[in-house]
Design a binder for these strands. Structure first.
Lengths: 121, 121
DNA sequence: CTCGTCCTCAACCAAAGGGTTGACAATGCG
DNA sequence: CGCATTGTCAACCCTTTGGTTGAGGACGAG
């Protein structure tokens, strides 16, 4: 299994079924059975999906009688947002610069992380 | 291969090597050979990685003599950001609400999900 | 205690993914 | 032209993954 957290998160969200589950979990916690309802797959398959989400830190499960309510965690979204935002901004910036210079200057010219940067590649 | 764009993007970014490539491409375009340099894998493997990124719409390739410079595209990042932001906010909102409830009553008394599944629209 | 409910564990299978090696297309240069 | 450089295509190998079925654990209700 992927070692680093970010890989696990991205991999978890690479599946449409799991993304749908996440979408529904933003509305309310749900049991595995409730989660399974809309899909045409076995309960066990759904259980596996939930586990993947759990391993990625996207959800947590508690115990409540025989039920195992699944709860969406917000933190990981922040993590992803930070990651994404960084590259999104960089890509846009580069796009602008390239447009400006159009291949006359090499990367001497590349500035350190621009405004509000602060992480290392 | 995953049909929907979002799945492709997430899947593409689920690999650390590919994320690293993306990181480096925010600094400058690069050829496949240049991209391959840091890694201890075959050129063909790198070529495959680039293709995955391309299929996901994260990069484009042009022709320039025998070289095929790889260029990072910013648009897809916007797409992802929008998707993410939506769920991040929803999750936070829900978190706050739950926090509120938890704050006012003992844990084993938590009124869980609306009974009788209010499954999804 | 027994039963039904809810869920997980285990074994298995087909397909996809990341890696390899080997052949070869495309282009510039001597 | 012949050849080196750059990159892709193709076939193959494992491992992972999403799915299945079957067995069974945990718990509440009777």
């Amino acid at each position: 299994m992927a070692a680093d957290p970010l890989s696990r998160v991205f991999a978890a969200l690479a599946d449409p079924t799991r993304r749908d589950m996440v979408a529904r979990l933003t509305l309310a916690d749900a049991t595995v059975n409730e989660l399974a309802a809309p899909y045409d797959i076995s309960l066990q398959a759904v259980s596996k999906h939930v586990r993947v989400l759990e391993d990625a830190g996207l959800v947590t499960r508690s115990r409540e009688a025989q039920r195992r309510p699944v709860h969406l965690e917000a933190e990981v979204f922040d993590l992803m947002t930070k990651w994404l935002e960084r590259y999104r901004r960089a890509a846009e910036e580069r796009y602008r610069r390239l447009d400006d210079v159009l291949g006359s200057m090499p990367e001497d010219d590349v500035p350190p992380t621009p405004p509000a940067g602060g992480a290392r590649p």
